[in-house]
Design a protein around this nucleic acid. Sequence first.
DNA 1: ACACACCTGGAGCGTCGTTCCAACCAGGCG
DNA 2: CGCCTGGTTGGAACGACGCTCCAGGTGTGT
Lengths: 234, 234
Amino acid sequence: MATRAGRTQRRTEALSRERIIEVAVELLDSAGDGGLTFRALTERLATGPGAIYWHVANKGELLEAATDGVITAALAAEPAEQADSPRDRIRAIALGLFEAIDRHPWLAPQLAAQFSRKPWGPVTPRIFESIGRQVRELGVPKENWFTATSGLVHYILGAAGQNAANAASVRLLRTEDERAEFVEAVAKAWEELDPEEYPFTRAVADQAREHDDREQFLAGIDLVLAGITAVQGQ
Amino acid sequence: MATRAGRTQRRTEALSRERIIEVAVELLDSAGDGGLTFRALTERLATGPGAIYWHVANKGELLEAATDGVITAALAAEPAEQADSPRDRIRAIALGLFEAIDRHPWLAPQLAAQFSRKPWGPVTPRIFESIGRQVRELGVPKENWFTATSGLVHYILGAAGQNAANAASVRLLRTEDERAEFVEAVAKAWEELDPEEYPFTRAVADQAREHDDREQFLAGIDLVLAGITAVQGQ
DNA sequence: ACACACCTGGAGCGTCGTTCCAACCAGGCG
DNA sequence: CGCCTGGTTGGAACGACGCTCCAGGTGTGT
């Protein structure tokens, strides 16, 4: 349904599907996962729920559209630095997704849902394709394309989603001091675990305290890439 | 709050925190993410919400407790086959988590939330520790312990979560025929993508059609493990 | 100027998580 | 023996949610 693309575009600034999605993304970004409410939406758009439901079937479709829009933009953005090798291009794509999910933490669960419930939808192939092409150019033999690409995509979405949830909860702490305090508290809690039961976690508490999320993410990408090129030729 | 461990255990089968969590897991398993309702809970336990709220602070705490219980059981279970090397033990732990998440798909988002919002909670260190110990025994130099373990855990949770969401939606299809039909439909949709825009995805549609989820997951583990041992010594 | 298809927003339904509180019941005290 | 007290229980009710319904507005084609 939803005829859309009104043949005559009546008003200068009317209610449109695009405008609704735009505000939905704003609400999700500013108020988190549960921030997208039809009541908040009607208030921001100065309208009623009926008007919104004319443009959008339900909340699920609105979330899908918001996800699609943000992911498409993230994959279309050109990498800041030049990326000459397939390896660098994979790193660039991964970093683009990482940053998109970091800016819009609600993306993580949404992506997981879309990958499974609608693998034929626009998002899944788009991500798979852009990573897969570079895997192919890496010289991976064809019979391993699917395994290598799946592994990479799973790592990217898993790690980025994890980091996003993390960043979202840290972002609620307003001052820089509060954030440092949070990281410190976690590291300390790990250091104070039972030495008998948690020797390893205690030992890496210091590395957890000092790690940088983005570097850690890229180090993981390198790990998987090393695995891909180690297991098979090239 | 919550005196618990009632001094006299009045009835033979009374309401207890343990009983509530048990039923909560049943509800989540049978009815999916949104199946856990205080109304469904009161009905199954033949009581009112007040009684439940006396044992449990709120829905979030109930979800945490359910997650903790299931994960602890999964990590405690002995691997079916003997696992002599650290590599085999990592594969066994990963497979245990994979199967736990497969059986309880609601675990995936819940784990992601707990890892970020409460990294000091019981679940995060427990998973980190059991993987990390084997990473240490793999001979990885100490300065890379955190990176290697994070990479593994991110892959495991990302891939298992993805698979869980997938399996959950497929499980809604009753007959074996319907499931085969679903897989076939996805593969076909991929094959019919625009050849200009999606050459790679079209090329691997066949591999997607024939892949086995569990094997694919383990292949990804091997990929990361190969990366860990390739990047650094051993 | 009339009609009709498109678009709007307010009222309201059913369900959710959660709170409140009157009643209940077992064990200790008079 | 009865009562009293404090740990438990469950029913009623509240506010917020997603969503539906529908009586109207609004503008364009005729």
